[in-house]
Amino acid sequence: MKILVPVKRVIDFNVKIRVKADNSGVETANVKMGMNPFDEIAVEEAVRLKEKGKATEVIAVTIGPAQCQDLLRTAMAIGADRSIHALFDGETQPLGVAKTLKAIVDQEKPDMVILGKQAIDGDNNQVGQMLGALLGWGQATFASKVELGAGSVNVTREVDGGLETLQLKLPAIITTDLRLNEPRYATLPNIMKAKKKPIEPFDAAAKGVDLSPRIKTLRVDEPGSRKAGIKVPDVATLVDKLKNEAKVI
């Protein structure tokens, strides 16, 4: 059983985002980048399935600029066996990413693709569902528990009202939610080992995939900012303010 894990390079989740002065986007120069947190969880889940003897091979893939190699090394230090890099400079959008992943799936024939539920830059939450449609596979999004059966997988999903469990036929798509697992820190020996694992290029254009953006960003603005209010000294003042000033109770 082969598992493919798409990982995206994004601005580190701890970085304070700054909108560019010309409103063309957000500042990415000299900003700390890292693996999308949901994708770390996806890699961890795939590696755990391998460690339990249920998966035989874990392949990390990314679509993005040359610097994405760091990301693939990180995935391989966690335990992915090898990587595929579709080189692309510029903004990737979900539909183009899904089409590229479809072409990679056609080549690699995995039994499962585990993605993050959303990339925390664009907050799109789309690629997994799109890949499911393009491949004609079942999908379980927002997974908090994955249990492999014979020819099928049971996935518990985090939905608005609570939890829901689905059974999917394999091959299938899973997208991760935060509580699926806690990703490990890569150890130094594993980081060293990862340096020797192969990264194979993938030419999306040669497969006829168009990665150019379909949705045009006209401008990016700062959100309407909230100004800090006041500190009140005690409960009585708070109740008074809520009743007589804010009039919310």
Partner: peptide, 9 residues
């Protein structure tokens, strides 16, 4: 986008 830290048009 970016957890509401920017608004894209």
């Amino acid at each position: 986008i970016y957890a509401g830290n920017a608004i894209a048009t």
